[in-house]
Design a protein around this nucleic acid. Sequence first.
DNA 1: ACCCAGGGTCATA
DNA 2: TATGACCATGGG
Length: 218
Amino acid sequence: MFERLFAAYGPRDWWPGDSIFEIMVGAVLTQNTAWTNVEKAICNLKRAKALSPQAIVDAHPRRLANLIRPSGYFNVKTRRLRALCAWLLAQGGIKKLAKMDTEPLRLALLSVHGVGRETADDILLYAFERPVFVIDAYTRRIFTRLGMIAGTEDYETLRGMFEEVLGADVALYNEYHALIVRHGKDICRKKPRCNSCCLAAVCPSCGEAGGPRPILIQ
DNA sequence: ACCCAGGGTCATA
DNA sequence: TATGACCATGGG
């Protein structure tokens, strides 16, 4: 799958971001949100010189909400960003976190309000460069339709399956997840009655066109 | 007028 | 453990 996706889409060059902190912020802002909207929010933060843990904690919530408004859920995300930054400062900053082992760091991230499994793993993989495979809705959808997983596995089980098969490899996980997201945009979202929805040029179930790359057809 | 996007929390059963 | 409501903007 990786070989085919890579051949079809090429290197994705993930994660967009100039710093570890920017990646962490982006991971929260992109929750159930198109990245183009996140870009605008991050741009606003930069322009306001508010893209730092201290600046975000110090900023008035209403002002922060206005800056990140384009990313949607701005009230929810204001609280989440503040929680993340407060935690970051309490932990002594990113340098300290970077020294932690992956497992304790993952648990610590998960303890932060607004950081769930996927967001934590995005941060671990793309910001801290730890070999943690990110599972998202696209991963489930694609591999379920291909019949490679049942689809009902819980997050940790699925993550374990990928990590076991692939072996600990940061560069591979990085590229793979990015490719899965890229491919996810090409396949239709509607639940197919058949098992080949994401394999056909036109979905036989919902009729949606412009489907996946032929190279993925088996 | 829809549909959906690089989820997570919280209440309820 | 497993659903469902809720959050909100912007592009197609």
